[in-house]
Design a protein around this nucleic acid. Structure first.
Lengths: 220, 220
DNA sequence: GACCGGGTTGACCGCGCGGTCAAGAACCTG
DNA sequence: CAGGTTCTTGACCGCGCGGTCAACCCGGTC
């Protein structure tokens, strides 16, 4: 369930890491790093800024994480770990498609709202060519998608939904839900200041589920 | 039609700019800049790299564009200019909804395929908080969306499609089509090396149009 | 050819940032 | 309290990058 996902080590194998204490501070650093990386991605982030946000001297971050890249990797692992299970919880053969799909969409939208920084960091990583998460994409994620695709295909075979390319259906669901985290500036700017966040996410949920449920021809 | 969109000047009003020549080289610089900005966004881009890619000494870029930020702004203006008209060409009241929507989706997907860099630069700009394009989002784009929303609402009023929140419909269409440019690493990794680009985009077009047309309940 | 102005360029500069370090503080363990 | 180990931190360093500059090239004009 919450086994942390490990990005394969890049160059030197992740440093001794003895049974050391590594107490409280690391959590504060990770949280601050997630916030800072979320605005502007890896290159725009400043170690000094993360340190300030965490209320610690810069040298302390280096004590715990060594380099900026390793801190970044730790943040990414956190995000991936949290992500991998949302899909597995909803897209299962037993569940009726209407419930599974709308539940999944709702969960993804709620996540986009609650933790937009995570989504944005991942987006920036992909935009930048996915140098770090490539192994995850081609490995674990690919495997998960093919499992979930089997579920979709089975629903179609049982006549519960229309035929559709399952992988692309997921690409579309991810795109639509995460756009509300990644590009929320655009959404807020277009909808204008008079639209509340509640309204936005309610309309988003209605629209996305309508597109997906009817688009897949889900029988009620 | 192709009136270049101008981002409002930031600090000093865009430098004298006399009736000067400004010949060929600027185009080469802009093209190189688009390519370099596309991988990694503003901060990751190096002026020296752009110069190398354009086959010019770095000092030459500064001669034409002054600062990195101004060069970046020029690239963004290029992109926005090209973008504004795709929607206006397809989403018009006269056209039957099925044709308009599938045409628009096709055009956006073709653009994502042909010029992924442009989409990625814009995505990175939004992720980074849209410091430069904010006026565009809240101004011109917002206006266009409300115009296009009127078209959607009119189709719904005439019973040609179901009721749907028009702005969110556009957010979803943009998200689904641009994901094929922005996150193509992820898509390629998940689909695996045996899937060709042609297959990918054919399936993408089929899936997105199916979701949108049926999702909106477009009558044939 | 002399002059001029836009264009071109290699060499240079300053600073901001990631990373280091060495001198302690704090905390265990006997 | 002595000795060792884990943390903490201000001060420092080097380099990579955006930006500058002054010398130069070159086509046009009289």
């Amino acid at each position: 369930m919450d086994t942390p996902f490990r990005l394969p080590p890049l160059d030197p194998p992740d440093a001794a890491e003895p049974g050391a204490p590594r107490r409280g501070h690391t959590a504060a650093i990770l949280a601050a790093a997630e916030r800072v990386f979320a605005r502007g991605g890896f290159d725009a982030a400043r170690m000094a800024e993360i340190a300030a946000e965490a209320g610690l001297p810069k040298a302390n971050l280096h004590y715990y994480f060594g380099t900026k890249e390793r801190l970044y990797r730790a943040v990414l692992e956190d995000i991936i770990t949290q992500w991998l299970d949302a899909a597995a919880a909803w897209i299962v053969p037993g569940r009726p498609p209407a419930e599974a799909l709308s539940g999944y969409i709702g969960a993804k939208l709620a996540d986009a709202r609650a933790r937009p920084g995570a989504s944005r960091i991942f987006a920036a990583e992909l935009l930048g060519g996915a140098r770090l998460v490539m192994p995850f994409l081609a490995g674990e994620l690919r495997r998960r998608v093919s499992e979930m695709s089997a579920v979709i295909d089975e629903w179609a075979a049982r006549g519960l939904i229309d035929r559709i390319a399952p992988a692309h259906l997921f690409f579309c669901i991810w795109a639509m839900t995460q756009t509300y985290a990644d590009f929320d500036v655009q959404i807020r700017a277009v909808l204008g200041p008079e639209t509340t966040e509640d309204e936005t996410f309610a309309a988003a949920a209605a629209t996305v589920t309508q597109l997906v449920l009817r688009g897949c021809g889900v029988r009620a």
